[in-house]
Design a protein around this nucleic acid. Structure first.
Lengths: 363, 363
DNA sequence: CTGAAAGCGCTAACAA
DNA sequence: TTGTTAGCGCTTTCAG
């Protein structure tokens, strides 16, 4: 009705209405179908017609609309990705892997960062479904069962990463966080540590705590409950909690962090407390962040193949249909570096100043 | 033609055809328009009708299709984001800012990581335009002028970040990298350094090198050309180049890295060479990566407000129309920590083995 | 080989 | 207030 002036668009940079396939057809003097055939490559078209169409496309600077196409094809070539926090190098690398694999698969990725919050997860999942993405890759919080079920009904493939959700029969890609945490904790235990502080994320974010506890139980030792703390995955919150941990009264002799962001916090807290690693306190964390080998001493970590996980997830979600194993387990690796040492009972209350001076200051 | 069996979909988790607004209308016993009015909130509807519609929506687990909506509205509520590398904490934080701002603006973000490559940039930009995103935020490589012009013609808002492209009149958000680099270099120069190694990204990725050179010129000193190197932004490539830099014959007494990923490489190279920071070599880099203050000594950096830049960019691209300043400059900050010290002429060629042994080895 | 036409799911204008 | 209708831009039969 108000489309009359749209015909002769030739201004070089005005937000005039976008060219459509119909415009191209007219400009090329062919039918709509011919244009489509030429552009999609499906179906035949005479060399002459093809040339005229291509010429018109060039002249009009035509770009097909993925909207029209998607509506017709019931396929958007878009993937959804829900991670906790792009600032965490693990998720950064994972996302990079997804993006890179998606690219070779001819897909694009809508990325959502939802910070382990079920309500946010619901919101994002809902939005992705409405976008009719071809698939979504998510680090599930464990909730929102209904939404995830709705996905399958809409024909949207879902792949979960890092956590298995029992209530849902969704293909899942994990590293065995529980085992990794257990192995790490056992390593610390073997070094003689008993007062090991555990710094974890919100409940549901991995199985680290279970592994931590399992190691203690297997060793017949009691879990130091007052040293087991969880925090939201922000640097501020993590710092506060880590500081509390380090200052616990019978101080911990080792710290285990469930993510590298929490590991950072642990290290900062240790420094703030004037403690030395590993002499005063050992530190161990999940994920081999690039900086882990840069600090001194380099941090002993449980390494997960982040990028590869991203690549695999993208492939999995694209290889439609419930084919094969519902949960695939990728290997972790305990990379021993220099941040963990034997517990030293002799070290007593650490004295950073001569004993005499310290007493002097108190008097 | 083959749509006959789609009517009575009630299987709980089959990929049956998605519900449409028409289905809802029928189930609720109202017209299509009424459903739309209720769901969009625009226009009137009796309480009775509204209730029946909502009920039907719930029963059918209906989710509106953003495709149909977008086609009609000529608006997708999707933003495109093109960064170089999500593994670089700067881009990670930037992306986090974009995502977070987009969320409050009711937009979603398709993220593309293109590694500073013009060809890849073109591919991504093209794709985003075809998706008819509402806007795109990009760290431009400088090329692909035609595509970016096409964007405006399609009514797609574009915002550039970090680099101004003279040939294009696009709203741009930058930190003055040239000034920041110059200030940093002057700092090094003031410390007495002359043999400063420059480790940069591909040409076009920021104005760091210009600033580096400007500082030398202003000081009347000659740029040590053999110490100015550029690399692709991958860790492998960066490591190789950094190593070469450190091993240059009259060795550099200071290193300036244009990104934190390059800074990592510099540090690794320094360690590999058995050198100590800042005694043997000073190190300075762009971007206050979280690990910068964690290593010892903590790294002196030029800090840019990554997250805030992301937030601003998202706002800018959403606040349609060419309103206001075409290029907005955000402040950087030189954060002096412990990785830079005065040049020590007395230190002579560093000898990690006794001089005699060295000669011995040569003979 | 090619043009015409139907329809994907939605919104908005119009008529009732 | 509400139902009907006309497209948004594309792919895909189906005739010609």
């Amino acid at each position: 009705m108000s489309d009359h002036e749209a015909a002769g668009g030739r201004c070089p940079a005005e937000p005039g209405r976008a060219m459509t396939m119909k415009d191209v057809a007219e400009a090329a003097g062919v039918g709509l179908g011919t244009v489509s055939r030429v552009l999609t490559g499906k179906g035949q078209a005479s060399a002459a017609a093809r040339e005229r169409v291509l010429e018109a496309v060039r002249r009009l600077d035509y770009r097909p609309s993925a909207l029209g196409r998607g509506l017709k094809l019931r396929r958007t070539d878009i993937l959804g990705l829900i991670v906790a926090d792009l600032c965490d190098p693990f998720y950064g690398e994972f996302a990079e892997g997804v993006l890179s694999a998606a690219r070779t698969l001819g897909k694009h990725v809508i990325v959502c960062a939802g910070g382990e919050d079920p309500a946010t997860e619901r919101e994002y999942a809902e939005v992705l479904l409405q976008q009719r993405v071809d698939g979504v890759i998510a680090f599930p919080t464990g909730g929102n069962v209904d939404v995830w079920q709705g996905a399958r009904r809409l024909g949207v493939n879902v792949v979960f990463v890092d956590r298995v959700v029992e209530a849902l029969d969704v293909p899942t890609l994990v590293v065995d966080n529980a085992s990794g945490s257990r192995a790490a904790t056992e390593y610390l235990l073997a070094l003689g540590h008993r007062r090991i502080g555990y710094l974890g994320g919100p409940p549901g974010a991995g199985q680290h705590e279970e592994g931590f506890r399992a190691a203690f139980h297997a060793a017949g030792a009691a879990v130091p409950e007052e040293l087991v703390v969880r925090t939201r995955p922000t640097r501020e919150s993590a710092d506060a909690v880590a500081l509390r941990l380090v200052r616990a009264d019978p101080a911990p002799t080792a710290l285990f962090a469930a993510t590298s962001v929490l590991g950072e916090a642990a290290l900062r807290a240790v420094r703030a407390g004037g403690l030395r690693v590993p002499r005063d306190v050992s530190v161990l964390m999940f994920d081999d962040a690039p900086w882990a080998s840069l600090v001194s001493p380099p941090v002993t970590v449980v390494s997960r193949p982040a990028r590869r996980m991203g690549v695999e997830a993208a492939r999995l979600v694209t290889a439609a249909g419930p084919g094969g194993h519902p949960v695939r387990v990728l290997p972790y690796e305990l990379v021993v570096r220099g941040s963990c040492g034997p517990r030293n009972p002799a070290a007593a209350p650490v004295e950073t100043v001569p004993a005499g001076a310290a007493r002097e200051a108190e008097e």
